[in-house]
Design a protein around this nucleic acid. Sequence first.
DNA 1: GCGGCTATTGTTATCGAGAACAGTTCAGAT
DNA 2: ATCTGAACTGTTCTCGATAACAATAGCCGC
Lengths: 356, 356
Amino acid sequence: MTVDGEPSGSTTAPAGTRRSTTIYDVARAADVSHQSVSRYMRGMGMRPGTKAKIEKALETLEYKPNLSARALITGRSLRIGALTHETHQIGPSMIIQGATAAARDAGYLLDVVALDMGDRADINRALGLLMQYDLAGILAFASTDSTRAVFEGTDFGVPVVLAAEDDEPATIPHVHTASRGIHDLVDHLHDLGHRRMLHIAGPADWSAARNRLQAFDTAVRAHGLRPFGVVHGDWSARSASALVQHMDADDLPTAILAANDQMALGAIHALRGLGLDVPRDVSVTGVDDTPESPYFTPSLTTVRLDFRAQGRQVLETLLTELGVTTEPEDRDSAPDPPSVTVMIRESTGPAPRPRG
Amino acid sequence: MTVDGEPSGSTTAPAGTRRSTTIYDVARAADVSHQSVSRYMRGMGMRPGTKAKIEKALETLEYKPNLSARALITGRSLRIGALTHETHQIGPSMIIQGATAAARDAGYLLDVVALDMGDRADINRALGLLMQYDLAGILAFASTDSTRAVFEGTDFGVPVVLAAEDDEPATIPHVHTASRGIHDLVDHLHDLGHRRMLHIAGPADWSAARNRLQAFDTAVRAHGLRPFGVVHGDWSARSASALVQHMDADDLPTAILAANDQMALGAIHALRGLGLDVPRDVSVTGVDDTPESPYFTPSLTTVRLDFRAQGRQVLETLLTELGVTTEPEDRDSAPDPPSVTVMIRESTGPAPRPRG
DNA sequence: GCGGCTATTGTTATCGAGAACAGTTCAGAT
DNA sequence: ATCTGAACTGTTCTCGATAACAATAGCCGC
């Protein structure tokens, strides 16, 4: 690690001058009023002569606007707060990346604040800090009902976009995507002859978990079947492994659809512990397609979701809310729904012939 | 997803009042000067009578300080910018969590800005945005030499702590930790009879990769051996898998030490593709201990690092740099080095007897 | 009960930008 | 050449906090 101390002043400015150059400095150098400089910065029309003077002065002084001052007077800012959690999961992480990129494109800075969603006090402390700054808006990735309640119960004073999957599947594209993926997986397994399908769902208070469960249920029934069963994990490999370990050995499913790749991994691990082979005895699928999934043993059949596009879309929703027009281009109707691709790998195979 | 529009005013304030309450509002309500309110907020001494008046007024008005205004006049702020990348990796993600918590404890807000380190233009754009805000300091998690150069070459005007592992192992604790872990792994493998050890290193321009490689080399030579070989991956399972696939089948190592768990996973996958069993034919180890590693097939022997503690330490370094005293407590000497634990699982076993 | 101090409190200036309004300039019409 | 109005430019005020300084109030001893 390296620690850089306070850098010395630039070569042009006298050493020790800490405060950066302001529009007044520029105005003096250009021999115009500070207001003209301000107007120039905002791209307002002006006579070529003054424009040239200002530009010349700007070149010398390397002026950087002070956004605190601007925010103070305008009451608006170009910062967007993003509240999220579980950042080491591929989904949240990629969604944030997409949102960050989209924000940058629109000239906004996305502040990511990672919260410990289990700790209500922590959430409130972070929100308290955050709200004191001028934020243009807030993006809350509230995946669970309880955190969602926190956001809905708080008056932030600025537009808030709560990015959680809704239970009503009507609202937004990316709900459909995960659901569509689950449908495709069920179809795939059905084609392979599977009729006894178990779903390892996420925690019941996660809307994403409910949606995936719902999709599973619908898809299975669409084939005239009934779900073999549903159990709830906590998204972790550990939880799924424990659940599978305690299954009734005399009454096993032929296929397990886990709600994410980690739980699929845990399921495979536990099945192996039970002396069962994947996919010969039981097929297993996940959702997310983490970069590691192709290298699992066996490699995992799963659904690839376009998280980045989701993040972008959520951010654009907020921008619309803020009255920022993002798309001067064609895009006449609704944005493309993010893509879903079923990745068929080694963890799924033909259903074993019924015993007996 | 749900979109909340601009919330209506609270019940106490007249609807439509957008601007929040200021110290002037409080001062008027308490019948004191705004300066007294400011003093109260800063915890300065005052007569009990005025103090009581102010507290009473504060209760009614739910005043929140405007930190932009404060930053404008003081030139200081309570924001720390954290520049990072690869946030979906367990390491960076946990380090950020630790830093966030430490910052919160000290009353600071940590703004996490995720950068695409491959895209120089993106970095500069993000830095440009960030620097316009009043930041108390910047934490740059610059893992590669080139990004490090970017940070070192930029005058941020505020203290910057570059948190990258140094090549000189003298500077900082957490360098030692990963290295110590590698040493322990090598010892473990040596005890099992392994003499032909291959290291799958990270990219050569990552200081972390160089350190781990260096540790591997030292540890192997400490046993009077020579490294069987070193190859460089890019931290991904894919890269390690490709490297292992192209090994000379007639001249294989008995153990592979990958510089992280993902690459270990890729190595295992490729070995299996070559018809080799792990750990019977080849032992494999990783570094990081991701939550999934115990559920790999076979479960992975690896090193658990305390990333959270690392993040906390780096942030405290910055706080010290800022002149903030964080530890009123005992802690007389240097902080405890973050812990390292070797997690021995199924992927390592006795070295196979030499063929022939 | 009155100087002399110190501890509190109040008043005005300040940070760096934009808003509001007033004062110029300049082109085209008369 | 003069008027008119739009386009530009400059002055002053404002945002919400702290800094610097001035003005009190209370406390002490004589």
